[in-house]
Design a protein around this nucleic acid. Structure first.
Lengths: 116, 116
DNA sequence: AGTAGTACCTTGTAAACCTAGGTATATTAT
DNA sequence: ATAATATACCTAGGTTTACAAGGTACTACT
């Protein structure tokens, strides 16, 4: 088993970091307005500078919905496949604000640690 | 299966967020000077405002060492159990800088998303 | 002798991203 | 017509990793 390159390690780390951030980002996007899964993937890809896999987003949306943090409804399109539009709920907005608060706290901690 | 409370969901999320952050934080601490596992746990606990479990840190230190991002040496204490002191390597410092760069980028992305 | 504090480690479980598939509809090119 | 592309959804299985819960060993204090 060889030692990985820095590039490989960085990519692996970025993937791990996303695990926690994705919840926050999805709720933040939905807080700005309704959207559907396929569009969400491209929005997040731009924000994070990395393409999000569908196998990541769709299960996440299901989990958020089962936790009642977001709600969903199908909309038949005049052209193209139907879309499942998601909205943030009050509980979701509540959690989002607490996440942002915690995020700011952690960010301060890192700032102090890097620039003491 | 009942819906979780906001507190439970937040705690769960914070745990996930740590998955990515811990690598960065451990390397950042070691970049400021050598340290040993037990002391590292209390330092991180203060920074993150949450007590880190030993079962989290010790395996992480082993992984970082096997990736040659940190190095370790035992030191016999005049009093008390021996300590395993860790140092950051050049490769570790290199990765840390790239992590911080990516972190800043992601942080900007979140800022723009929350305050457009 | 017993308790508490320091310091290390391992095993097993749960969570969640991602790869690699799959389905279905509409448009465009051949 | 029909093949290819784009849009849009989903799932199963592998992999990683934080954490709980357990363990070992040394020292100091009562």
């Amino acid at each position: 088993m060889s030692v990985s390159t820095t590039e490989e390690l960085l990519a692996k780390w970025e993937r791990q970091l996303r695990k926690g951030l994705l919840h926050l980002l999805v709720l933040a996007v939905l807080d700005k307005g309704e959207t559907y899964g396929y569009e969400l993937i491209s929005k997040l890809g731009k924000q994070l500078g990395a393409d999000m896999a569908e196998g990541t987003i769709y299960p996440l949306l299901s989990r958020l919905q089962s936790e009642k943090l977001i709600s969903a409804e199908w909309q038949i399109m005049e052209s193209g496949p139907a879309r499942k539009y998601y909205h943030i709920t009050d509980a979701g907005r509540d959690l989002l604000n607490q996440m942002l608060s915690h995020w700011a706290h952690v960010n301060d901690g890192i700032e102090r640690m890097v620039h003491p």
